[in-house]
Simulated assay, not measured.
Amino acid sequence: MTSSATVFNTLPRSVAAAVWRADQLGTVAHATLSSGFDVLDAALPGGGWPCRGLTELLCSQAGVLEWRLLGPALRAQQAGPQGPLVLVAPPWVPHVPGLRSLGIDERRLVWIDARSSAERVWVVEQLLRAHPVGSVLAWLPDVRAVQLRKLQVLAGQAGVEHGPVFVFRDGPAALDASPVPLRVRVRPGPGLMLQVELLKRPGAPLDRVLTLMAEPPGLAGWLPSPRSASSVILPETADVVGRSAVIRSRTVQRPVAH
């Protein structure tokens, strides 16, 4: 019986270069945007967040962890000529000082306050049909798998490269099936660290937790230098963040970034 390796070695070089093996990290034919974390880029197909298709982020507390994880990438993108950053139904009112601390120019920010689940999905559909050149961040906690499949198809059919499209859902959604090829769960880790799990990605599964040092920009220079973080396996930690970081009064504008 001829082994798969023997067959692979007999393929023309151009064909062999296009073959993906299931035990290897998948590759992408389109552009990616660096996450700003070397250890995370090394685990993401193409070395960063995909700029075509969806990325599903599962967060234990909406409106906090996603900004700490995506801040470096969004800051780098805003430094270039790309289009606006579009927010669809963020859980809190955009907080300009917090966004500025992330390096995000509020003049290039579009906030769409869709209320119902159907409205939110419809808005994202229209954005994808328009081939956005910037990034889209959409909070869709109640989105269904069939809706995600449609959004994934629309994002993958974009005629031009655009910025990443992120869909945010609650942590328990990790138990649900999803057609999105890249699913990431982020939870608070010790100190200012984030624990990131790649629940699904093109290629071999990742069997470890990535630990990222994600110091909020507003605290830079005020805290002692932390020890460097690397990709390690850590035990489960409490699924909470500091309550003092969240303002819940109805009379106070709620921040989206810290």
Rank of each mutant, 00 (worst) to 15 (best):
N9A: 15
Q24M: 10
L25N: 02
F37E: 02
V39A: 13
V39E: 11
D41H: 11
D41W: 12
G47I: 09
P50I: 04
L54A: 07
T55F: 01
E56P: 04
L58D: 01
G63Q: 08
W67Q: 15
L70M: 14
A73G: 10
A73K: 10
P81L: 14
P84A: 14
P84L: 09
L85V: 13
L87E: 01
P94G: 07
H95S: 06
H95Y: 12
P97W: 03
R100S: 13
S101N: 11
S101G: 06
G103M: 11
G103D: 12
R108E: 10
A114W: 09
A118Y: 13
Q126P: 01
Q126G: 09
L128Y: 04
H131N: 08
P132G: 05
D142E: 13
Q147T: 03
R149P: 01
V160C: 09
H162W: 02
H162F: 01
F168D: 05
A174N: 07
S178Q: 06
S178W: 12
E197K: 14
K200P: 01
K200N: 08
P202N: 05
G203F: 07
G203Y: 01
L206Y: 03
L206M: 13
R208L: 01
P224H: 12
V241A: 11
A245P: 00
V246N: 04
R250T: 06
R250S: 02
Q253K: 02
